[in-house]
């Protein structure tokens, strides 16, 4: 079946035609392709972000099956980045996808993200999040951050001149590697819900539209249906 111009029909008029075109020329880098990154990447591709750089050095393993959108039984043992690229191409062949099957570190991270308009933090370690924030500030691009534990999640947006993660996690010299997720695990619907909130913030930042969670932290907890937006400054 020919897709033609119908692909984005249902985006209108929530998005305008010029905004759709703007998304097509936008570049987003996603760090971490697990519970958050899989959802974020797929939602951005379906919405019409034209250039995605998908970065993760890990391979899929059975414990990922409970929540990671790109993890199927067929791709166990396969690179998350390569599986993500294949999935995104299957969903939207108009997206220019670059997959990077490497772990990010202090040396290579800036080079991976410097051409992006925006970077999305879907990582699973607190020190790595600070490393990414540092690289995003160096590249002078905003960072959309999500983090999850069990059925709890949080989302914020950090611009280059903002204090950022220090407001949430404290000084980076005193960081634990993990938060409470090492005890709670991560549940699929919470991961995808936070991923959806991150995708929403990405679109808002790219289009400079709506209320952006800058210097604010959205906190949610699903047992109690708590959703609160807190002021960080």
């Amino acid at each position: 079946m020919s897709i033609g111009t119908e692909r984005y029909d249902r985006n209108f008029d929530t998005l305008t035609r010029p905004q759709q075109a703007q998304l097509a020329s936008s570049r987003v880098a996603v760090l971490g392709l697990g519970g958050l990154g899989g959802g974020v990447s797929e939602m951005l591709a379906r919405t019409g972000v034209g250039h995605l750089t998908l970065i993760d050095g890990d391979v899929f393993e059975p414990s990922n099956l409970n929540r990671q959108l790109f993890c199927t039984e067929e791709v166990l043992g396969i690179s998350k980045a390569l599986a993500a690229e294949k999935r995104i191409r299957a969903v939207n062949s108009q997206v220019q996808v670059t997959s990077i099957d490497q772990y990010a570190d202090g040396d290579n991270l800036y080079g991976m993200i410097k051409h992006a308009d925006l970077v999305v933090d879907c990582l699973d370690s607190i020190p790595a999040r600070f490393m990414l924030e540092h690289a995003a500030k160096k590249a002078q691009i905003p960072l959309v951050a999500g983090a999850i534990a069990g059925v709890t999640g949080q989302v914020t947006v950090i611009f280059p001149e903002d204090k950022g993660y220090e407001l949430i996690y404290g000084k980076k010299e005193h960081l634990p590697a993990k938060g409470i997720e090492s005890r709670t695990g991560n549940i699929s619907y919470c991961a995808l819900m936070v991923a959806a909130l991150q995708a929403s913030e990405c679109i808002k930042v790219l289009l400079d539209r709506g209320d952006i969670l800058r210097n604010k932290l959205l906190i949610m907890e699903l047992w109690s249906n708590s959703f609160e937006v807190m002021d960080l400054v």
Partner: peptide
């Protein structure tokens, strides 16, 4: 630590009617 929707420090002195929320570190992806 959030008091009435705003981040505060441990030294904050609580006032009548304050809404205090305490949140653990969350870092999973």
């Amino acid at each position: 630590i959030f008091v009435n929707g705003r981040k505060q420090e441990t030294t904050y002195v609580l006032k009548p009617g304050d809404r205090l929320g305490l949140f653990p570190p969350v870092g999973g992806g």
